[in-house]
Amino acid sequence: MWKWLYKLGSPKWFYTMTGQYMPWLVGLTVILLGVGLVWGLAFTPPDYQMGENYRIAYIHVPSASIAMGCYYMMACMAAAFLIWRIKMADMVAKACAPVGMTFTAAALFTGSVWGIPTWGTWWIWDARLTSTLIMLFLFIGVMALRSAYDSAQSGAKASAVLTLVGVVNVPIIKYSVEWWNTLHQGASNLSLSNTAANPPEVWVPAFFVGFGLLGFFLIAIILRTRNEILIRERRTDWVSDILGDARGEN
């Protein structure tokens, strides 16, 4: 267990490992996303209230979940970097910010577009929407703070601290619909035993999209982290070897 963690902290090991498993991850992601999106867009029956418009839920809900999960991941990496000074953790944290930002933007945009015909408004300052907007600003802030420093080490530390300060916002997003009156609906109660309120034909495709998007998220994080590794380790022999191979290709 510890040995594995220790290995994961090695940039070279991370780079080669992710390079090996990437094709599998890409294949799985394409299948899951493809099945889920086609199913949700064309095969699931329309909702009895919202008609076809609720198909936006198939991208809105997983985008929001992934964005929140991304923030948690970024916070864990920030803590690992601050406490144990693991360089790999900082590289992953750096990769999380832009990915999380785009997913939060996707959740907000798809939610707004969904809201126009169903709610009658594209925005309301309720607790769910406001806290999600705060998360978008946190992602942007973390990126901006990192780039504001000349020293990479200082920037990494400052953005890690901001990340940890903002992590409390994520449970607020999750429970906002329970703690306060919001225009946003609550979380769906999915179960195989009580299928009356949310039948599986509606939420099974959502699971496909959800896991597909999780795979996509991992791919996006891995791609960025690998780039960061190459930049930071450019003076090492093993990166020179990779460059040598690339020279052969050109």
Binding site: P46, W119, G186
Partner: peptide
Amino acid sequence: QILAKHDENYMPAESVAA
């Protein structure tokens, strides 16, 4: 201004009858 609030249940018409 009137806004509609949706519940967290998504279902096709036949499930509603049930």
